[in-house]
Nucleic acid binder design. Structure first.
Lengths: 117, 117
DNA sequence: CCAGAATGCCTAGGATGTCAAGGTGTAGCC
DNA sequence: GGCTACACCTTGACATCCTAGGCATTCTGG
């Protein structure tokens, strides 16, 4: 039960470009593997953000390809093989730029949304 | 290399899904034509938001096709023919839903971005 | 001991939305 | 006459995301 594949009507989907930032954020806290990233983001956002594996893994390769993430195989607490991702120096820098951009965008959109005549 | 998403510093790009909401917002204030929408949003957001015509018009047709906008030909202050867009009832409803979704997303992303260990 | 769920990784295909770059035509100004 | 601003529209490319699968391992219950 409680299959998290349940999708409420009007459930917010991710906006393009947001995913990378979120991934970088959770990977910045400590090395983490893909499967856990999904759960982490879901948990922190109180189930508001849902990330599919079909979105996650391509994003992960993209980020690694761009030199923003690096990966190492390791063992989880449950004794399984998993690929742990962590930020590179460039990743950290990129993350800060993305965050700044996101805040700018938020503010700008708010300005428009709250504008009256 | 050749990362084609090369953007000039300080130049914020829109996130997918945001455009519709912004258009609905400015059209909600009063009927407005396409060319003016671009300028309005740019102005209100203090040049932070840039909308290309190549993004705008497809969005306009999309919204009209979905029954969220309706259009009427009219004359501008400068005496030119222009297509004025305004919100339908469904458009108003949709706009409110989009706004709510946007706020939820903002909050959720903020939660993640500000999360610590 | 075997089935199924949970964990963990990955891929293919299609839909969507944005952007760059063009095109049309009119009005006003020097 | 030529240039800029206004105002509309189209095409093609491309990145990103989602749906919907597949594979392998470990743990649990009957």
């Amino acid at each position: 039960m409680a299959r998290h594949t349940e999708k409420a009507p009007g459930d917010a989907e991710l906006l393009q470009g947001t995913l990378d930032m979120l991934i970088l954020k959770v990977a910045a806290l400590r090395p983490i593997h893909g499967y856990a990233i999904v759960q982490r983001i879901q948990q922190i956002s109180r189930e508001a953000l849902q990330i599919r594996q079909g979105s996650l893994y391509p994003a992960l390769y993209r980020l690694e390809n761009q030199g923003l993430l690096k990966s190492d195989w390791g063992k989880t607490e449950t004794g399984r093989e998993a690929k742990y991702y962590s930020l590179t120096k460039a990743g950290r820098k990129h993350f800060e730029a993305e965050t700044a951009g996101w805040k700018r965008l938020c503010d700008a959109v708010s300005l428009v949304l709250e504008s009256a005549e």
